[in-house]
Design a protein around this nucleic acid. Structure first.
Lengths: 246, 246
DNA sequence: TAAATAGTGTCTCTCAGACATTATCTT
DNA sequence: AAGATAATGTCTGAGAGACACTATTTA
Protein backbone atom coordinates (compact mmCIF):
# COMPACT_ATOMS: atom_id res chain seq x y z
CA UNK A 1 0.00 0.00 0.00
CA UNK A 2 1.64 3.16 -1.13
CA UNK A 3 -1.09 5.72 -0.68
CA UNK A 4 -0.02 8.30 1.87
CA UNK A 5 -3.53 8.92 3.17
CA UNK A 6 -4.04 5.41 4.45
CA UNK A 7 -2.71 4.37 7.86
CA UNK A 8 -0.24 1.54 7.58
CA UNK A 9 0.02 -1.51 9.81
CA UNK A 10 1.94 -4.72 9.98
CA UNK A 11 -0.25 -7.79 9.72
CA UNK A 12 0.89 -10.84 11.61
CA UNK A 13 -0.43 -14.37 11.51
CA UNK A 14 -0.21 -16.28 14.78
CA UNK A 15 -0.93 -19.95 15.29
CA UNK A 16 -2.37 -21.86 18.21
CA UNK A 17 -1.30 -25.40 17.35
CA UNK A 18 -3.06 -27.78 19.71
CA UNK A 19 -2.44 -31.43 20.40
CA UNK A 20 -3.20 -34.00 23.09
CA UNK A 21 -0.21 -35.70 24.71
CA UNK A 22 0.51 -37.10 28.15
CA UNK A 23 -3.19 -36.90 28.94
CA UNK A 24 -3.11 -33.10 28.64
CA UNK A 25 -3.94 -30.51 26.02
CA UNK A 26 -0.73 -28.96 24.75
CA UNK A 27 0.01 -25.97 22.57
CA UNK A 28 3.05 -25.28 20.44
CA UNK A 29 5.06 -22.35 21.81
CA UNK A 30 8.32 -20.67 20.94
CA UNK A 31 10.75 -18.88 23.21
CA UNK A 32 11.26 -15.39 21.90
CA UNK A 33 14.90 -14.77 21.01
CA UNK A 34 14.64 -11.03 20.52
CA UNK A 35 13.09 -8.05 22.18
CA UNK A 36 10.38 -7.30 22.96
CA UNK A 37 9.34 -10.02 25.36
CA UNK A 38 12.72 -11.70 24.95
CA UNK A 39 12.75 -15.08 26.65
CA UNK A 40 8.99 -15.26 27.03
CA UNK A 41 6.79 -17.93 25.55
CA UNK A 42 4.81 -16.91 22.51
CA UNK A 43 2.61 -18.53 19.93
CA UNK A 44 4.47 -19.18 16.69
CA UNK A 45 3.71 -16.74 13.94
CA UNK A 46 5.10 -14.19 11.59
CA UNK A 47 4.29 -11.35 9.29
CA UNK A 48 2.14 -11.60 6.22
CA UNK A 49 4.20 -11.60 3.04
CA UNK A 50 3.25 -9.20 0.23
CA UNK A 51 1.80 -11.77 -2.13
CA UNK A 52 0.16 -14.37 0.04
CA UNK A 53 -3.31 -14.93 1.37
CA UNK A 54 -3.91 -15.14 5.10
CA UNK A 55 -4.48 -18.88 4.91
CA UNK A 56 -1.29 -19.31 2.90
CA UNK A 57 0.63 -17.37 5.52
CA UNK A 58 -0.75 -19.60 8.25
CA UNK A 59 0.29 -22.73 6.36
CA UNK A 60 3.72 -21.30 5.65
CA UNK A 61 4.33 -20.40 9.26
CA UNK A 62 3.13 -23.81 10.39
CA UNK A 63 5.53 -25.48 8.00
CA UNK A 64 8.38 -23.25 9.11
CA UNK A 65 7.81 -23.86 12.80
CA UNK A 66 6.94 -27.53 12.81
CA UNK A 67 8.35 -28.86 9.58
CA UNK A 68 4.93 -30.32 8.86
CA UNK A 69 2.99 -30.02 5.66
CA UNK A 70 -0.19 -28.48 6.94
CA UNK A 71 -2.18 -29.65 3.93
CA UNK A 72 -5.17 -30.81 5.90
CA UNK A 73 -4.35 -30.56 9.57
CA UNK A 74 -7.56 -28.70 10.29
CA UNK A 75 -6.26 -25.17 10.27
CA UNK A 76 -8.99 -22.60 10.80
CA UNK A 77 -8.96 -18.86 11.19
CA UNK A 78 -10.12 -17.83 14.62
CA UNK A 79 -10.30 -14.01 14.68
CA UNK A 80 -8.09 -10.93 14.61
CA UNK A 81 -6.62 -8.85 17.39
CA UNK A 82 -5.80 -5.19 16.99
CA UNK A 83 -5.40 -3.36 20.28
CA UNK A 84 -3.21 -0.32 19.51
CA UNK A 85 -0.64 -1.17 22.19
CA UNK A 86 -0.48 -4.90 21.78
CA UNK A 87 3.00 -4.72 20.25
CA UNK A 88 5.45 -2.14 21.63
CA UNK A 89 7.30 -1.99 18.29
CA UNK A 90 4.36 -0.40 16.55
CA UNK A 91 1.02 -1.09 15.05
CA UNK A 92 0.53 -4.82 14.50
CA UNK A 93 -2.79 -6.46 13.75
CA UNK A 94 -2.65 -10.19 14.32
CA UNK A 95 -4.82 -12.79 12.64
CA UNK A 96 -4.99 -15.88 14.81
CA UNK A 97 -5.36 -19.40 13.46
CA UNK A 98 -6.13 -22.61 15.32
CA UNK A 99 -4.55 -25.86 14.17
CA UNK A 100 -5.33 -29.29 15.54
CA UNK A 101 -2.98 -32.23 15.07
CA UNK A 102 -2.13 -35.65 16.47
CA UNK A 103 0.79 -36.16 18.81
CA UNK A 104 3.53 -36.37 16.20
CA UNK A 105 7.21 -36.85 17.11
CA UNK A 106 8.37 -33.31 17.86
CA UNK A 107 8.54 -30.02 16.10
CA UNK A 108 11.85 -28.89 14.77
CA UNK A 109 13.22 -25.61 16.01
CA UNK A 110 12.32 -23.13 13.33
CA UNK A 111 14.55 -21.19 10.99
CA UNK A 112 14.24 -18.19 13.26
CA UNK A 113 16.54 -19.95 15.73
CA UNK A 114 13.66 -20.10 18.15
CA UNK A 115 13.05 -23.24 20.14
CA UNK A 116 9.61 -24.66 19.45
CA UNK A 117 8.13 -27.04 21.96
CA UNK A 118 4.88 -28.26 23.44
CA UNK A 119 3.60 -26.64 26.60
CA UNK A 120 0.61 -27.78 28.65
CA UNK A 121 -2.30 -25.43 28.07
CA UNK A 122 -3.62 -25.62 31.61
CA UNK A 123 -0.32 -24.42 32.98
CA UNK A 124 -0.05 -21.54 30.52
CA UNK A 125 -3.57 -20.35 31.19
CA UNK A 126 -2.87 -20.32 34.92
CA UNK A 127 -0.23 -17.60 34.46
CA UNK A 128 -2.05 -14.86 32.56
CA UNK A 129 0.79 -12.33 32.55
CA UNK A 130 3.71 -14.51 31.53
CA UNK A 131 3.00 -14.68 27.81
CA UNK A 132 4.42 -12.43 25.13
CA UNK A 133 2.11 -9.78 23.68
CA UNK A 134 -1.57 -10.65 24.14
CA UNK A 135 -0.99 -14.30 23.39
CA UNK A 136 -2.71 -15.32 26.59
CA UNK A 137 -5.88 -13.89 25.10
CA UNK A 138 -5.30 -15.61 21.78
CA UNK A 139 -4.74 -18.93 23.51
CA UNK A 140 -7.83 -18.56 25.67
CA UNK A 141 -9.98 -17.91 22.63
CA UNK A 142 -8.36 -20.70 20.63
CA UNK A 143 -8.96 -23.30 23.31
CA UNK A 144 -12.55 -22.23 23.76
CA UNK A 145 -13.01 -22.39 19.99
CA UNK A 146 -11.60 -25.89 19.82
CA UNK A 147 -13.78 -27.03 22.72
CA UNK A 148 -16.90 -25.74 21.03
CA UNK A 149 -16.03 -27.36 17.74
CA UNK A 150 -15.56 -30.80 19.27
CA UNK A 151 -19.23 -31.05 20.08
CA UNK A 152 -20.66 -30.56 16.63
CA UNK A 153 -17.84 -31.50 14.27
CA UNK A 154 -15.74 -34.61 13.77
CA UNK A 155 -12.62 -32.61 14.62
CA UNK A 156 -11.65 -34.76 17.61
CA UNK A 157 -10.31 -37.45 15.28
CA UNK A 158 -7.54 -35.10 14.15
CA UNK A 159 -6.08 -35.43 17.65
CA UNK A 160 -5.92 -39.19 17.18
CA UNK A 161 -3.48 -41.40 15.28
CA UNK A 162 -4.67 -42.83 11.95
CA UNK A 163 -6.18 -45.84 13.72
CA UNK A 164 -7.65 -45.49 17.16
CA UNK A 165 -10.05 -47.05 19.61
CA UNK A 166 -13.22 -45.48 20.88
CA UNK A 167 -11.62 -45.24 24.33
CA UNK A 168 -8.82 -43.16 22.82
CA UNK A 169 -11.33 -40.89 21.16
CA UNK A 170 -13.23 -40.55 24.39
CA UNK A 171 -10.03 -39.64 26.16
CA UNK A 172 -9.56 -36.78 23.68
CA UNK A 173 -12.97 -35.40 24.53
CA UNK A 174 -12.38 -35.81 28.24
CA UNK A 175 -9.01 -34.08 28.11
CA UNK A 176 -10.05 -31.19 25.93
CA UNK A 177 -13.27 -30.62 27.83
CA UNK A 178 -11.85 -31.45 31.25
CA UNK A 179 -14.83 -33.65 32.03
CA UNK A 180 -15.62 -37.31 32.48
CA UNK A 181 -17.85 -39.02 29.95
CA UNK A 182 -19.84 -42.20 30.37
CA UNK A 183 -18.05 -44.87 28.29
CA UNK A 184 -21.25 -46.69 27.40
CA UNK A 185 -23.18 -43.69 26.20
CA UNK A 186 -20.16 -42.27 24.41
CA UNK A 187 -19.71 -45.53 22.56
CA UNK A 188 -23.31 -45.59 21.49
CA UNK A 189 -23.24 -41.98 20.35
CA UNK A 190 -20.06 -42.01 18.29
CA UNK A 191 -20.85 -45.32 16.62
CA UNK A 192 -24.33 -44.04 15.84
CA UNK A 193 -23.21 -40.76 14.28
CA UNK A 194 -23.24 -41.34 10.50
CA UNK A 195 -19.83 -40.99 8.88
CA UNK A 196 -17.93 -40.24 12.06
CA UNK A 197 -16.04 -43.53 12.47
CA UNK A 198 -15.19 -46.38 10.12
CA UNK A 199 -14.11 -49.71 11.63
CA UNK A 200 -10.87 -50.86 10.08
CA UNK A 201 -11.43 -54.51 10.97
CA UNK A 202 -8.42 -54.54 13.26
CA UNK A 203 -8.44 -55.00 17.00
CA UNK A 204 -6.17 -54.12 19.86
CA UNK A 205 -4.32 -56.85 21.78
CA UNK A 206 -2.45 -57.24 25.00
CA UNK A 207 -4.24 -54.53 26.94
CA UNK A 208 -5.53 -56.69 29.73
CA UNK A 209 -9.15 -56.66 28.74
CA UNK A 210 -11.45 -57.30 25.88
CA UNK A 211 -9.79 -56.11 22.65
CA UNK A 212 -11.19 -52.92 21.19
CA UNK A 213 -12.09 -52.52 17.54
CA UNK A 214 -9.92 -50.05 15.68
CA UNK A 215 -11.44 -47.18 13.74
CA UNK A 216 -10.35 -44.45 11.44
CA UNK A 217 -11.99 -41.09 10.74
CA UNK A 218 -15.03 -41.28 8.50
CA UNK A 219 -16.07 -38.90 5.72
CA UNK A 220 -18.37 -36.70 7.82
CA UNK A 221 -17.26 -33.31 9.09
CA UNK A 222 -20.43 -32.32 10.91
CA UNK A 223 -21.70 -34.44 13.76
CA UNK A 224 -25.36 -35.46 13.87
CA UNK A 225 -26.41 -35.67 16.55
CA UNK A 226 -23.86 -33.56 18.39
CA UNK A 227 -21.85 -34.83 21.33
CA UNK A 228 -22.98 -32.58 24.13
CA UNK A 229 -20.36 -30.95 26.29
CA UNK A 230 -22.32 -30.01 29.36
CA UNK A 231 -24.92 -32.35 30.77
CA UNK A 232 -27.08 -29.26 30.71
CA UNK A 233 -29.24 -30.06 33.66
CA UNK A 234 -31.24 -26.98 34.47
CA UNK A 235 -34.57 -27.87 35.95
CA UNK A 236 -33.34 -29.09 39.32
CA UNK A 237 -35.54 -26.61 41.11
CA UNK A 238 -38.79 -28.43 40.68
CA UNK A 239 -40.03 -26.86 43.90
CA UNK A 240 -42.25 -23.86 44.32
CA UNK A 241 -39.60 -21.28 43.50
CA UNK A 242 -41.01 -18.61 41.28
CA UNK A 243 -38.60 -17.51 38.59
CA UNK A 244 -35.52 -19.58 38.04
CA UNK A 245 -33.64 -18.35 35.02
CA UNK A 246 -30.12 -17.25 35.70
CA UNK B 1 4.95 0.45 11.91
CA UNK B 2 8.18 1.98 10.84
CA UNK B 3 10.49 -1.02 10.69
CA UNK B 4 11.73 -1.45 7.14
CA UNK B 5 11.93 -5.25 7.33
CA UNK B 6 8.24 -5.75 7.96
CA UNK B 7 5.76 -5.82 5.07
CA UNK B 8 3.19 -3.08 5.39
CA UNK B 9 -0.54 -3.36 4.76
CA UNK B 10 -3.60 -1.27 5.13
CA UNK B 11 -6.12 -2.71 7.55
CA UNK B 12 -9.75 -2.04 6.79
CA UNK B 13 -12.81 -2.72 8.90
CA UNK B 14 -15.95 -3.59 6.97
CA UNK B 15 -19.43 -3.96 8.37
CA UNK B 16 -22.31 -6.19 7.42
CA UNK B 17 -25.20 -4.40 9.14
CA UNK B 18 -28.25 -6.62 8.97
CA UNK B 19 -31.86 -5.86 9.68
CA UNK B 20 -35.27 -7.27 8.91
CA UNK B 21 -37.69 -5.03 7.05
CA UNK B 22 -40.49 -5.55 4.56
CA UNK B 23 -40.44 -9.25 5.41
CA UNK B 24 -36.89 -9.57 4.03
CA UNK B 25 -33.39 -9.61 5.41
CA UNK B 26 -31.62 -6.40 4.43
CA UNK B 27 -28.04 -5.26 4.63
CA UNK B 28 -26.68 -1.73 4.75
CA UNK B 29 -24.76 -0.87 1.58
CA UNK B 30 -23.06 2.19 0.21
CA UNK B 31 -22.57 3.23 -3.39
CA UNK B 32 -18.90 3.72 -4.00
CA UNK B 33 -18.18 7.29 -5.07
CA UNK B 34 -14.59 6.73 -6.15
CA UNK B 35 -12.55 4.28 -8.06
CA UNK B 36 -12.03 1.41 -7.83
CA UNK B 37 -15.45 -0.14 -8.23
CA UNK B 38 -16.98 3.28 -8.63
CA UNK B 39 -20.78 3.10 -8.59
CA UNK B 40 -20.86 -0.40 -7.22
CA UNK B 41 -22.50 -1.43 -3.99
CA UNK B 42 -20.14 -2.14 -1.12
CA UNK B 43 -20.37 -2.84 2.56
CA UNK B 44 -19.67 0.26 4.64
CA UNK B 45 -16.23 0.36 6.16
CA UNK B 46 -13.00 2.21 6.38
CA UNK B 47 -9.42 2.04 7.40
CA UNK B 48 -8.21 1.41 10.91
CA UNK B 49 -6.95 4.57 12.60
CA UNK B 50 -3.54 4.53 14.26
CA UNK B 51 -4.76 4.55 17.84
CA UNK B 52 -7.93 2.54 17.86
CA UNK B 53 -8.78 -1.07 18.51
CA UNK B 54 -10.55 -3.13 15.85
CA UNK B 55 -13.79 -3.06 17.81
CA UNK B 56 -13.51 0.69 18.22
CA UNK B 57 -13.01 1.10 14.51
CA UNK B 58 -16.11 -0.96 13.82
CA UNK B 59 -18.16 1.15 16.18
CA UNK B 60 -16.79 4.35 14.72
CA UNK B 61 -17.58 3.30 11.17
CA UNK B 62 -21.04 2.22 12.19
CA UNK B 63 -21.66 5.60 13.79
CA UNK B 64 -20.33 7.42 10.73
CA UNK B 65 -22.43 5.46 8.28
CA UNK B 66 -25.68 5.18 10.17
CA UNK B 67 -25.56 7.97 12.71
CA UNK B 68 -26.34 5.37 15.36
CA UNK B 69 -24.57 4.87 18.62
CA UNK B 70 -23.55 1.27 18.33
CA UNK B 71 -23.16 0.85 22.09
CA UNK B 72 -24.86 -2.50 22.25
CA UNK B 73 -26.26 -3.29 18.86
CA UNK B 74 -24.74 -6.76 18.84
CA UNK B 75 -21.64 -6.04 16.83
CA UNK B 76 -19.40 -9.06 16.50
CA UNK B 77 -16.20 -9.68 14.64
CA UNK B 78 -16.68 -12.28 11.94
CA UNK B 79 -13.25 -12.98 10.42
CA UNK B 80 -10.59 -11.36 8.26
CA UNK B 81 -9.99 -11.46 4.54
CA UNK B 82 -6.58 -11.04 2.99
CA UNK B 83 -6.36 -12.28 -0.56
CA UNK B 84 -3.43 -10.41 -2.16
CA UNK B 85 -5.50 -9.08 -5.05
CA UNK B 86 -8.71 -8.26 -3.23
CA UNK B 87 -8.09 -4.52 -3.58
CA UNK B 88 -6.51 -3.21 -6.80
CA UNK B 89 -5.04 -0.20 -4.97
CA UNK B 90 -2.68 -2.38 -2.98
CA UNK B 91 -2.47 -4.67 -0.06
CA UNK B 92 -5.56 -4.38 2.14
CA UNK B 93 -6.50 -6.83 4.84
CA UNK B 94 -10.11 -6.44 5.86
CA UNK B 95 -11.61 -7.36 9.21
CA UNK B 96 -15.31 -7.99 8.80
CA UNK B 97 -17.87 -7.28 11.51
CA UNK B 98 -21.51 -8.30 11.66
CA UNK B 99 -24.03 -5.98 13.28
CA UNK B 100 -27.66 -6.79 13.91
CA UNK B 101 -30.23 -4.08 14.52
CA UNK B 102 -33.97 -3.42 14.47
CA UNK B 103 -35.60 -1.65 11.56
CA UNK B 104 -34.83 1.92 12.60
CA UNK B 105 -35.90 4.95 10.52
CA UNK B 106 -33.15 5.22 7.92
CA UNK B 107 -29.42 5.61 7.88
CA UNK B 108 -27.99 9.00 7.06
CA UNK B 109 -25.70 9.30 4.12
CA UNK B 110 -22.23 9.25 5.59
CA UNK B 111 -19.61 11.95 5.71
CA UNK B 112 -17.90 10.37 2.75
CA UNK B 113 -20.71 11.68 0.55
CA UNK B 114 -21.71 8.11 -0.10
CA UNK B 115 -25.36 7.15 -0.09
CA UNK B 116 -26.09 4.50 2.49
CA UNK B 117 -29.23 2.45 2.09
CA UNK B 118 -30.76 -0.91 2.80
CA UNK B 119 -30.61 -3.57 0.14
CA UNK B 120 -32.34 -6.94 0.23
CA UNK B 121 -29.79 -9.65 0.96
CA UNK B 122 -31.43 -12.23 -1.25
CA UNK B 123 -31.13 -9.97 -4.26
CA UNK B 124 -27.48 -9.13 -3.58
CA UNK B 125 -26.50 -12.75 -3.13
CA UNK B 126 -28.12 -13.64 -6.43
CA UNK B 127 -25.63 -11.44 -8.30
CA UNK B 128 -22.23 -12.67 -7.15
CA UNK B 129 -20.13 -10.47 -9.39
CA UNK B 130 -21.82 -7.12 -8.90
CA UNK B 131 -20.32 -6.23 -5.54
CA UNK B 132 -17.21 -4.16 -4.92
CA UNK B 133 -14.06 -6.02 -3.88
CA UNK B 134 -14.82 -9.41 -2.31
CA UNK B 135 -17.83 -8.07 -0.46
CA UNK B 136 -20.01 -10.79 -1.88
CA UNK B 137 -17.90 -13.25 0.07
CA UNK B 138 -18.06 -11.15 3.22
CA UNK B 139 -21.82 -10.89 2.95
CA UNK B 140 -22.24 -14.61 2.37
CA UNK B 141 -20.22 -15.40 5.46
CA UNK B 142 -21.96 -12.75 7.54
CA UNK B 143 -25.42 -14.02 6.70
CA UNK B 144 -24.44 -17.60 7.41
CA UNK B 145 -22.93 -16.48 10.69
CA UNK B 146 -26.09 -14.65 11.70
CA UNK B 147 -28.23 -17.65 10.76
CA UNK B 148 -26.15 -19.98 12.89
CA UNK B 149 -26.23 -17.65 15.85
CA UNK B 150 -30.01 -17.38 15.86
CA UNK B 151 -30.37 -20.99 16.85
CA UNK B 152 -28.34 -20.96 20.03
CA UNK B 153 -28.32 -17.34 21.13
CA UNK B 154 -31.00 -14.80 21.96
CA UNK B 155 -29.77 -12.58 19.14
CA UNK B 156 -33.05 -12.63 17.23
CA UNK B 157 -34.52 -10.10 19.64
CA UNK B 158 -32.10 -7.46 18.39
CA UNK B 159 -34.01 -7.50 15.10
CA UNK B 160 -37.19 -6.65 17.00
CA UNK B 161 -38.46 -3.36 18.41
CA UNK B 162 -38.23 -2.91 22.20
CA UNK B 163 -41.60 -4.56 22.68
CA UNK B 164 -42.71 -7.32 20.39
CA UNK B 165 -45.04 -10.26 20.09
CA UNK B 166 -44.01 -13.87 19.74
CA UNK B 167 -45.39 -13.84 16.21
CA UNK B 168 -43.03 -10.97 15.35
CA UNK B 169 -40.13 -12.90 16.80
CA UNK B 170 -41.12 -15.97 14.85
CA UNK B 171 -41.27 -13.89 11.70
CA UNK B 172 -37.64 -12.88 12.29
CA UNK B 173 -36.58 -16.51 12.46
CA UNK B 174 -38.61 -17.41 9.40
CA UNK B 175 -37.20 -14.55 7.35
CA UNK B 176 -33.57 -15.02 8.34
CA UNK B 177 -33.73 -18.76 7.92
CA UNK B 178 -36.06 -18.75 4.92
CA UNK B 179 -38.19 -21.46 6.48
CA UNK B 180 -41.63 -21.82 7.99
CA UNK B 181 -41.94 -22.60 11.68
CA UNK B 182 -44.85 -24.13 13.53
CA UNK B 183 -46.43 -21.28 15.55
CA UNK B 184 -47.49 -23.57 18.40
CA UNK B 185 -44.15 -25.25 18.92
CA UNK B 186 -42.29 -22.00 18.48
CA UNK B 187 -44.42 -20.38 21.15
CA UNK B 188 -43.78 -23.22 23.56
CA UNK B 189 -40.05 -23.19 22.92
CA UNK B 190 -39.35 -19.48 23.26
CA UNK B 191 -41.55 -19.06 26.32
CA UNK B 192 -39.85 -22.08 27.87
CA UNK B 193 -36.30 -20.91 27.28
CA UNK B 194 -35.15 -19.32 30.57
CA UNK B 195 -34.31 -15.64 30.29
CA UNK B 196 -35.17 -15.31 26.62
CA UNK B 197 -38.38 -13.31 26.88
CA UNK B 198 -39.96 -11.21 29.60
CA UNK B 199 -43.68 -10.37 29.34
CA UNK B 200 -44.22 -6.65 29.71
CA UNK B 201 -47.82 -7.00 30.77
CA UNK B 202 -49.03 -5.19 27.67
CA UNK B 203 -51.09 -6.66 24.87
CA UNK B 204 -51.69 -5.85 21.26
CA UNK B 205 -55.04 -4.56 20.13
CA UNK B 206 -56.95 -4.10 16.94
CA UNK B 207 -55.28 -6.85 14.96
CA UNK B 208 -58.39 -8.82 14.18
CA UNK B 209 -57.72 -11.71 16.47
CA UNK B 210 -56.88 -12.59 20.01
CA UNK B 211 -54.45 -9.97 21.38
CA UNK B 212 -50.90 -11.11 21.80
CA UNK B 213 -48.90 -10.50 24.94
CA UNK B 214 -45.98 -8.15 24.46
CA UNK B 215 -42.48 -9.16 25.45
CA UNK B 216 -39.09 -7.62 25.69
CA UNK B 217 -35.68 -9.28 25.53
CA UNK B 218 -34.68 -11.09 28.70
CA UNK B 219 -31.27 -11.25 30.36
CA UNK B 220 -30.11 -14.48 28.73
CA UNK B 221 -27.71 -14.45 25.78
CA UNK B 222 -27.42 -18.20 25.24
CA UNK B 223 -30.48 -20.23 24.38
CA UNK B 224 -31.26 -23.44 26.26
CA UNK B 225 -32.53 -25.45 24.65
CA UNK B 226 -31.60 -24.16 21.22
CA UNK B 227 -34.14 -23.35 18.53
CA UNK B 228 -33.31 -25.81 15.80
CA UNK B 229 -32.94 -24.55 12.28
CA UNK B 230 -33.27 -27.69 10.22
CA UNK B 231 -35.80 -30.35 11.13
CA UNK B 232 -32.84 -32.70 10.82
CA UNK B 233 -34.67 -35.80 9.78
CA UNK B 234 -32.10 -38.39 8.84
CA UNK B 235 -33.27 -41.90 9.54
CA UNK B 236 -35.80 -42.20 6.77
CA UNK B 237 -34.16 -45.36 5.48
CA UNK B 238 -35.53 -47.73 8.06
CA UNK B 239 -35.34 -50.55 5.57
CA UNK B 240 -32.78 -53.32 5.32
CA UNK B 241 -30.09 -51.18 3.74
CA UNK B 242 -26.76 -51.89 5.30
CA UNK B 243 -24.73 -48.72 5.74
CA UNK B 244 -26.57 -45.48 5.37
CA UNK B 245 -24.28 -42.60 6.17
CA UNK B 246 -23.91 -40.11 3.39
C1' DT C 1 -10.62 -68.21 38.68
C1' DA C 2 -10.51 -62.71 39.16
C1' DA C 3 -9.72 -58.37 37.16
C1' DA C 4 -10.00 -55.38 33.44
C1' DT C 5 -11.70 -53.37 29.47
C1' DA C 6 -15.20 -53.41 25.41
C1' DG C 7 -19.60 -53.28 24.06
C1' DT C 8 -25.01 -53.91 24.51
C1' DG C 9 -29.56 -53.35 26.59
C1' DT C 10 -32.92 -50.92 29.25
C1' DC C 11 -35.17 -47.34 31.66
C1' DT C 12 -36.45 -42.50 32.32
C1' DC C 13 -36.59 -37.87 31.15
C1' DT C 14 -36.24 -33.98 27.97
C1' DC C 15 -37.51 -32.14 23.93
C1' DA C 16 -38.85 -31.67 18.91
C1' DG C 17 -42.53 -31.89 15.62
C1' DA C 18 -47.39 -32.68 14.32
C1' DC C 19 -51.70 -31.31 15.19
C1' DA C 20 -56.03 -30.85 17.93
C1' DT C 21 -58.19 -27.74 21.05
C1' DT C 22 -59.33 -23.68 23.60
C1' DA C 23 -59.17 -18.54 24.29
C1' DT C 24 -60.08 -13.87 22.95
C1' DC C 25 -60.31 -10.46 19.95
C1' DT C 26 -62.56 -7.85 15.29
C1' DT C 27 -66.09 -7.61 11.91
C1' DA D 1 -72.64 -15.28 14.78
C1' DA D 2 -68.00 -16.04 11.67
C1' DG D 3 -63.28 -15.42 11.08
C1' DA D 4 -58.76 -14.49 12.70
C1' DT D 5 -55.01 -14.84 15.62
C1' DA D 6 -52.97 -16.33 20.32
C1' DA D 7 -52.02 -19.77 23.44
C1' DT D 8 -52.32 -24.47 25.46
C1' DG D 9 -52.59 -29.50 25.39
C1' DT D 10 -51.59 -34.14 23.61
C1' DC D 11 -49.29 -37.65 21.26
C1' DT D 12 -45.13 -39.82 19.19
C1' DG D 13 -40.48 -40.52 18.45
C1' DA D 14 -35.45 -39.18 18.84
C1' DG D 15 -31.98 -38.87 21.85
C1' DA D 16 -29.34 -38.02 26.39
C1' DG D 17 -27.89 -39.82 30.81
C1' DA D 18 -27.78 -43.45 34.30
C1' DC D 19 -26.63 -47.88 34.94
C1' DA D 20 -27.24 -53.00 34.69
C1' DC D 21 -25.53 -56.51 32.01
C1' DT D 22 -22.85 -59.38 28.67
C1' DA D 23 -18.44 -60.35 26.06
C1' DT D 24 -13.58 -61.17 25.64
C1' DT D 25 -9.18 -60.65 26.87
C1' DT D 26 -4.80 -60.91 30.45
C1' DA D 27 -2.89 -62.22 34.88
Amino acid sequence: MTRPDVPCSAVAVDLAVLTVRDRCLHVLVVVRAKRPHQGRLALPGGFLEPDEDLDQAAHRELAEETGLDAADLNVHQLRSYGAPDRDPRGRVVSVCYVALMPDLPLPIAGGDARAADWAPVEQLLAEPDQRAFDHHLLLTDAVEHARDRLSHTTLATTFCPPEFTIAQLREVYEIVWGTQLDPSNFHRKVTGAPGFLVPTGGRTAGTGGRPATLHRAGPATRLHPAILREPHSEQHTKGATGHEYR
